[in-house]
Write a protein that binds this DNA or RNA. Sequence first.
DNA 1: TAAAGTACTTCATCTGTTGAAGTAAATATA
DNA 2: TATATTTACTTCAACAGATGAAGTACTTTA
Lengths: 112, 112
Amino acid sequence: MVEISSDVIRGYNDTMILSILLLEPSYGYEISKQIKTITDGKYIIKETTLYSAFTRMEKNGFIESFTVEKDMEGNGKKRTYYRITEEGRKYYESKCEEWELTKDVVQKFIRR
Amino acid sequence: MVEISSDVIRGYNDTMILSILLLEPSYGYEISKQIKTITDGKYIIKETTLYSAFTRMEKNGFIESFTVEKDMEGNGKKRTYYRITEEGRKYYESKCEEWELTKDVVQKFIRR
DNA sequence: TAAAGTACTTCATCTGTTGAAGTAAATATA
DNA sequence: TATATTTACTTCAACAGATGAAGTACTTTA
């Protein structure tokens, strides 16, 4: 089985998280499950990677946090939600552009 | 201008170098020029990145070095050439496979 | 009542990349 | 012939993101 190394995905963990937050605010556990689902289990983000990304991105102004004690049905644990900021959107867009370039560049060194 | 961040290309510097060594042995300065040419100047590998990659890959058994005092016409400076090993070829092949997977995974989070 | 799932946090360590700086020979240019 | 540029590296310290290990604690399911 082919596995994705951390050195490869490194530059795109933030992008993945932001792409999920584009739709609506979410929290760690939920985001990690979504990433797994979206990639059909091909990529599972590590907890520490995820939470350190939150800290970093909040510091960079790409996301903002807020706390929710219970969900709307009164269930679940206390959660820290994150919402994407305007800066975060811009950063995400720039990462998408960068990705197109990266794809082209790397592809030139891949044997088909 | 879009630029490729080091966090993104991190996992593929070794792969790029190896793909060049697949054809014939080469040395640092030449390889860096080739990477620039192949990517139409879109990616320029840093000297320190390149030479530290050599050290690492030789340690890992992916490449072997040998010294050449002058080129075949008797020109140029002393150079350290590298040749890819069988292990290096295998590693390169596995990186190509990994790349196909990575492309698919990242693409799912990119807005088109 | 125990196990599994949810939802994190802290911390030390690792690895590849990088900037700064330096060395020195070969070649091109004035 | 003197100078600038190109070639061809090397050393070293610093940095940032990823990660494993470990821990906490509440909630839901069996």
